[in-house]
């Protein structure tokens, strides 16, 4: 079977996040990284292969900037066999709906029996991409999967809801999103990092992928940002740098000051 893992380039945890005041788009000029939630998707694909399922190919599918290459090298080092990078200036400014449509269009050509997404992207904080992609692909869906097993052509997944856990079975081909607690991703070895450089990256444009340009980009966006403003002001918290537990006294003092101990 083939597995496709959707991955996204996001601003790194250490870079300041801001919206460009003229376009209202996320300023992506700073350092970037592979969306940490997607790393769990890659790890799960590798675990399926290691568990003895005949996984012919793990392809990482990314929609992003041409210079998303660096985070994509990490996807290859983590265990993807190949990367498909959908990149096109016409895609910039796509909203959730446009992105889901574009990703699904590329995924359709990958012949994947299982499409895996991370539970959310760390820059957008939405957890809806998997469900939108599944509808475009007309495939069954299980989101926020906390544990996964495969038997024959059926997947069995456990996922948390507001009421506890549901166990859901779905017939492949299927789309899932994984919880960030499903596994502990390994760190790539030096050998894997070096090996990643030899793995193929297919760069495709919107036209190559057969994407209808009227449905993507800023022009195709169905959700349109009208204004951006600062949040209601709140009192800045206090900050202490701890060394070897030396903050304990200051914490106790603070708690006493606030009358909670």
């Amino acid at each position: 079977m083939n597995i496709a893992v959707c991955v996204k380039e996001v601003p790194s945890a250490t870079s300041a996040k801001r919206l460009d005041p003229s376009t209202y788009r996320l300023d992506r000029s700073g350092d970037s990284e592979l969306n940490p939630f997607d790393v769990h998707g890659l790890e799960e694909a590798i675990k399926l292969r290691e568990a003895g399922h005949e996984v012919e190919e793990i392809v990482a599918v990314c929609m992003g900037r041409e210079n998303a290459q660096r985070p994509l090298q990490k996807a290859l080092a983590l265990g993807a066999d190949r990367v498909v990078l959908l990149t096109d200036p016409a895609l910039a400014g796509s909203d959730i709906s446009g992105t889901a449509y574009a990703l699904a269009t590329v995924l359709e050509k990958q012949n994947a029996d299982l499409v895996i997404l991370g539970q959310q992207a760390s820059d957008a904080d939405c957890y809806v991409m998997a469900a939108a992609v599944a509808d475009h692909l007309r495939r069954p869906l299980v989101t926020q999967v906390a544990s996964l097993s495969l038997e024959g052509g059926t997947l069995r997944a456990k996922r948390q809801t507001e009421h506890g856990y549901d166990v859901i079975e779905a017939t492949l081909p299927a789309v899932i999103s994984v919880s960030d607690a499903i596994n502990t991703p390994r760190l790539p070895s030096i050998k894997a990092i070096m090996g990643a450089k030899k793995k193929p990256t297919d760069q495709v444009s919107a036209a190559d992928a057969g994407i209808d340009p009227s449905r993507v980009g800023e022009g195709g966006a169905k959700s349109v940002v009208r204004s951006v403003s600062p949040p209601p002001a709140k009192q800045e918290g206090r900050r202490i740098e701890d060394t070897g537990g030396d903050s304990a006294g200051a914490i106790v003092e603070f708690l006493a000051e606030r009358g909670v101990i």
Binding site: S97, M129, A131, V133, A134, D135, T161
Partner: peptide
């Protein structure tokens, strides 16, 4: 809600709407 989010996103894709 977990189910609500899935339905909202699936519906957005189905009817071509913004979310």
């Amino acid at each position: 809600g977990v189910v609500s989010a899935d339905v909202a996103a699936g519906l957005a894709a189905r009817v071509g709407s913004g979310i």
